[in-house]
C-alpha cells in the first residue's frame, strides 16, 4: 500500500515490452539502463521506482535467457523492497518467487527452494493459508521438489494446492485439472500407477461433465468408451468403427491442453497394462483434438 508505479514508468515498461517482443533487445536494454541511471540520480538507489525498473530490466534479460544477469538485478530489487516496503510485503514475495524461477531455469532447484519457501511464508501470512496465490506458490514449490525427487513433499504441496483451488475457484477451474495432472506425474515417478490413473479419469470425467452434463449410460466420458472397447475386443474380433459408440464424437470433443495431455498420459498407462485398444482410443482422441 501507499506506493503506486508512476505513469512514466508504466509507459516505459510498455515500450520496453514492445521492443523486447520484437527481439529488439539492443534498444530495450539501453533504454532500461538509462532510465535506471536517471531514477537513481533523482531518487537515490533505495527507492521503490528503482526496484520496479530493476524488475523490468530483469524481465528483458530473462527473455534473452540471461538468467545470471537477471538474478543479479532481482537480488538488488529484493534488497530495496525489503528496505522500503518491509520484509513481509507481497512485492517481496513476488520478487522471491521470480528469483526462485530464475534459479529453477538454471537447474539450481536446491538454491531455488528456500526462496520459494520464504515467498510461501509471506503469502500465507499476508493472504491467509488458503488464498489462490498461496496455491500458486505451492505449485512452484512442488515442482522444485519434484525435480529433486522429494516425492513426499511434492504430494503434500500439490494436495494442498488442489484443496485451495477446488474450494476457492471451484472444481471446473483449469487450475484444478492442471494440478491434478501434476500430482499424477508425481505418482507416475513413484510407480503409483493406480493413483495416477484415478486422477486422469477424474480430470476426463469432470471435463466431460462440464461440457455435456452428468455421466449416465448414454453420456460417458471417453475413458469409459475406451475401456468398453477394450472389453468388447475379446468378444467380437473386429469391433468396427468408433461410430458404433453413440456419444463417441461427443466424448472426443472435450478439448483443452490439459485434457489433451491427460488423454496421452492415460493412454500410456493403458498401454503399460496391455490394454492396447483402450490406449489407441485415447491416443486417437488426443490427435483429433490437436
Amino acid at each position: 500500500g501507499g506506493y503506486e508505479v508512476p505513469n512514466r514508468l508504466r509507459t516505459l515498461h510498455n515500450l520496453v515490452i514492445q521492443y523486447a517482443s520484437q527481439g529488439r533487445y539492443e534498444v530495450a536494454v539501453p533504454l532500461c539502463k538509462q532510465a535506471l541511471e536517471d531514477l537513481e540520480k533523482s531518487s537515490g538507489h533505495d527507492h521503490p521506482d528503482v526496484a520496479t525498473m530493476l524488475n523490468i530490466l530483469a524481465l528483458v534479460y530473462r527473455d534473452q535467457n540471461k538468467y545470471k544477469e537477471a538474478t543479479h538485478l532481482l537480488n538488488d530489487a529484493l534488497a530495496i523492497r525489503e528496505k522500503t516496503l518491509g520484509k513481509d510485503h507481497p512485492a517481496v514475495a513476488a520478487t522471491l518467487n521470480n528469483l526462485a524461477v530464475l534459479f529453477g531455469k538454471r537447474g539450481k532447484y536446491k538454491e531455488a527452494e528456500p526462496l520459494c519457501k520464504r515467498a510461501l511464508g509471506i503469502r500465507e501470512k499476508v493472504l491467509g493459508r488458503s488464498h489462490p496465490d498461496v496455491a500458486k506458490q505451492l505449485n512452484n514449490l512442488a515442482l522444485l521438489c519434484l525435480n529433486q525427487a522429494k516425492y513426499d513433499e511434492v504430494e503434500y504441496y500439490y494436495k494442498r494446492a488442489l484443496e485451495i483451488f477446488e474450494s476457492k475457484l471451484g472444481g471446473d477451474d483449469p487450475s484444478v485439472a492442471r494440478t491434478k495432472n501434476n500430482l499424477a506425474t508425481c505418482y507416475l515417478k513413484q510407480g503409483k500407477f493406480k493413483d495416477a490413473e484415478t486422477l486422469y479419469k477424474e480430470i476426463l470425467t469432470r471435463a466431460h461433465e462440464k461440457e455435456f452434463g452428468s455421466v449416465n449410460n448414454d453420456n460417458k466420458p471417453i475413458w469409459m468408451h475406451a475401456e468398453e472397447r477394450e472389453e468388447s475386443k475379446s468378444k467380437q474380433k473386429d469391433s468396427g468403427p468408433y461410430v458404433e459408440y453413440g456419444s463417441w464424437y461427443k466424448a472426443c470433443k472435450v478439448d483443452s491442453p490439459t485434457v489433451n495431455t491427460t488423454l496421452k498420459s492415460l493412454g500410456a498407462l493403458y498401454r503399460r497394462q496391455g490394454k492396447l485398444e483402450a490406449a489407441e482410443t485415447l491416443e486417437e482422441c488426443a490427435t483429433k483434438s490437436r
Binding site: Y3, V5, H13, P48, A51, T52, N55, I56, L59, R62, A77, R81, L85, H89, P90, A91, A93, A94, T95, N97, N98, A100, V101, G104, K105, A112, K136, N139, N140, L143, L144, L146, N181, N182, A184, T185, L188, P257, T261, K264, S265, G267, A268
Partner: peptide
Amino acid sequence: DQQGTSRQQQLEWDDSTLTY
C-alpha cells in the same frame, strides 16, 4: 508421454512484481 507431461509443468513467473 510421461516426459510430455512433465515438460508441460513450468515454474510460474509472478508478473505482479511490476505493479508495485
